[in-house]
C-alpha cells in the first residue's frame, strides 16, 4: 500500500481539522478500508483514526431510544444487548477479531451493498448523527457506497428507536461471509419496517409492499405468496437476480417468525 500520514485525534473537533486537508480520509476500525488500501483501491495521503475519540464510544439505552457512538465496535454493540435484532446483527458480522475492530460508523459511512448495519439503520428508522446535523436513515442511504455524508463529516452517533420485536436474518455468501441477502424486520406500535441489504444494485432498500401487509398481519404466512421485483437485483456468480429476489421473501418470513 502507498504510504500516508497517520494521525489519531482525541476529540471530534481535532478530527475535523485533520480531515479538512486534501486527500485525508477517516479511519474507523479499518476492516474494510485497510484491505482496500492494500489493493491500492484507496490511497489517502492522510488517515485520521477515529478510534481514540472517547466521546464517540459506547452504547446508551434510555427510554425507547438506543444511542450508539459512531466509533463503537460491533463487539460492544452486541455486548450491550439493546434489542434482539441489533444484538444478533452485530454479533454476526465477520468473526470475533473483526467485530473487535469494525465500527458502526465505519460500516454506515462506507455503505457497502452487502454490509449488515445499513439494514438495521433503515429498518429502525434510525437517525444518523454527524458533527453538524442529524440525517434520517430514509434520506441517508443513496445507493451503493453512496450516502448523504459530505467530505468532511463524521458519524458521531446513531440513534435507533427500540422496536417492540425485531430480527435480522442473513444468508451468508459462503466464502466472504458477507450477506448474500440480509433482511431486518422491526415492528413498532405504528407499523412494521423491512429493510433489505445485499440484494439490490441500489444498496439497502425498504420492501414497502411487505411492510404494508405485515403492519396489518405480522406473520410469515402473510407474505408467503408475495413476490419481489428482481429487475434491479444484483446478479453474480453467487446468485442470480431471481435467486436474490426469492431470498428476500424467504428471509423476511424467517425474520418475522423469529421476531414474533
Amino acid at each position: 500500500m502507498y504510504n500516508f500520514d497517520f494521525v489519531k485525534p482525541l476529540n471530534v473537533a481535532d478530527a475535523l481539522v485533520a480531515l479538512a486537508s486534501e486527500e485525508a480520509q477517516a479511519l474507523g476500525g479499518g476492516q474494510t478500508l485497510i484491505p482496500t488500501m492494500k489493493q491500492r483501491l484507496a490511497s489517502p495521503e492522510k488517515l485520521v483514526s477515529l478510534s481514540g475519540i472517547s466521546e464517540m464510544q459506547g452504547v446508551d439505552i434510555s427510554g425507547n431510544i438506543v444511542t450508539i457512538g459512531g466509533a463503537t465496535t460491533h463487539a460492544n454493540v452486541a455486548l450491550a444487548g439493546a434489542f434482539e435484532g441489533l444484538t444478533g446483527l452485530a454479533g454476526g458480522i465477520g468473526d470475533p477479531a473483526v467485530r473487535n475492530r469494525g465500527t458502526i460508523g465505519g460500516s454506515l459511512a462506507n455503505n457497502d451493498p452487502a454490509a449488515c448495519y445499513p439494514a438495521a439503520a433503515l429498518a429502525t428508522g434510525a437517525t444518523i448523527v454527524t458533527n453538524d446535523r442529524e440525517i434520517d436513515a430514509d434520506d441517508y442511504f443513496q445507493g451503493m457506497f453512496t450516502t448523504a455524508l459530505e467530505d468532511v463529516e463524521i458519524i458521531t452517533a446513531v440513534r435507533m428507536p427500540i422496536p417492540q420485536v425485531s430480527n435480522y436474518q442473513k444468508f451468508e455468501q459462503p466464502a466472504s461471509r458477507f450477506a448474500l441477502v440480509g433482511v431486518f424486520v422491526a415492528k413498532y406500535a405504528d407499523g412494521v419496517r423491512v429493510a433489505v441489504t445485499g440484494a439490490s444494485e441500489n444498496g439497502v432498500f425498504r420492501w414497502s409492499e411487505a411492510e404494508g401487509v405485515l403492519s396489518t398481519n405480522f406473520s410469515a404466512d402473510a407474505i408467503l405468496g408475495m413476490s419481489v421485483d428482481s429487475s434491479e437485483m444484483i446478479s453474480d456468480l453467487h446468485g442470480t437476480k431471481e435467486y436474490r429476489a426469492n431470498l428476500v421473501r424467504v428471509l423476511t418470513g424467517r425474520a418475522v417468525s423469529s421476531a414474533s
Partner: peptide, 18 residues
C-alpha cells in the same frame, strides 16, 4: 491473531501506529 488491550484482533488489519 493477537490480543490488543485484552481482546483478539487481526494484526494484519491494524496499523502499528493505531
Amino acid at each position: 491473531a493477537i490480543h490488543v488491550n485484552g481482546i483478539i484482533v487481526k494484526s494484519c488489519t491494524m496499523f502499528a501506529a493505531d
